[in-house]
Amino acid sequence: MSPRPALRRIVLLDDFGDAARHAADWSGLPVEIMQDHLQDTALHERLRDADAVVLIRERTALTADLLAALPGLKLVVTTGMRNRVLDLAACDDHGIAVCGTSSEPSPTVELTWGLILALARRIPQQEQLLRQGGWQQGAGLGLAGATLGVAGLGRIGAGVAAIGQAFGMTLLAWSPNMTAEKAEAAGATLASKEALFRRSDVVTLHLGLGPATRGIVGAAELGAMRPGALLVNTARGPLVEQSALIAALESGQLGGAAIDTHEPEPMAPDDPIRTAPNTILTPHLGYVTQQNFRLYFEGAVEALRAWNAGTTLPRPLNAAARD
């Protein structure tokens, strides 16, 4: 392996909660930890003379145009092993090595169930009412015997389904490529997309985002849901057509929605979902746990130190990292 020049400037982007510096030992590494979020010219200026960039999930996109304007960039470390806003082909074109890190699906599974329970039992509304001097109003949805529709049965969706079984729920599953065997292995029954939305009391989304799934939940799907049914999205915000979602909430067709992922992120101050009724909104907390951050940032440090030591890069994601 040919010698590598030592990294002189490492930029870690978008550490909104100042988590990175406490989650790993960065000693000896020339890392600058940034807590703000920049785009366009400001982002280019920040990265102009960086040798390495550390990305926290998909908070900032590294596009082909941006990568072409950063001739000094040698290494990108993305937390996790997939990043849809990082152009791996362009990294290869420019000889930029890309590494990933380990991560756990359990934090998003846990948050999904926190949101389902909060929606079903109207916990935020009841808590606020109590603080205002009131007492219980209305009745929540019991989950035992209710139907849970799981859209997507990857690691996270399968974990959510397992907990649904423990609650005594009937499970339906659907995705564009779902098989009856995969659904059955998760304790669910394969359903069509229309049937999943029509028959479920709670629908939870765990699909990847791409051209085929952007807006895959729209007015037709929301209109097919049982009156008062609940929608939870801890996958990707653009899976759901926001205007159709807001209309379904305002009409009362949808009993409530809990949304953890948004576009853009951070959410714009005037985003209309902020004022939609019967919503629980969280700022993309699915993966945000102390344990996951340790995996992320210890993995990033491992890759950065391996680069400086001239040793094999861990968890390579492109050809340039394997050379």
Rank of each mutant, 00 (worst) to 15 (best):
L143D: 03
M178F: 09
A191T: 08
A144E: 10
M178G: 06
A188W: 13
G157K: 05
G140C: 09
N177P: 07
G138D: 14
L153N: 01
G149L: 00
K182S: 06
K193H: 06
L171S: 02
A180F: 13
A158F: 05
G152V: 00
T189N: 12
L172C: 03
L190D: 09
G145F: 10
L172Q: 05
Q136W: 12
L196N: 02
N177R: 13
G138R: 14
L141Y: 04
T170N: 09
A151V: 06
T179E: 14
E184C: 15
L190C: 12
F197Q: 00
G154H: 00
T170V: 08
P176W: 12
K182R: 09
R155L: 09
K182E: 06
A166R: 07
V160F: 11
G133H: 01
I163N: 02
L172W: 02
W174G: 02
P176E: 10
S192V: 07
G152P: 02
T170E: 06
G142V: 06
Q136N: 03
S192W: 06
T147F: 03
W174N: 04
F197V: 00
L141F: 11
G157N: 07
E181D: 13
E184D: 14
T179K: 08
G140W: 08
G149R: 00
L153A: 08
G149D: 00
G140Q: 12
L143I: 08
E181N: 10
E194P: 03
A162Y: 09
A151I: 02
L190T: 05
F197L: 00
A144Q: 11
S192N: 07
A139V: 14
Q165C: 14
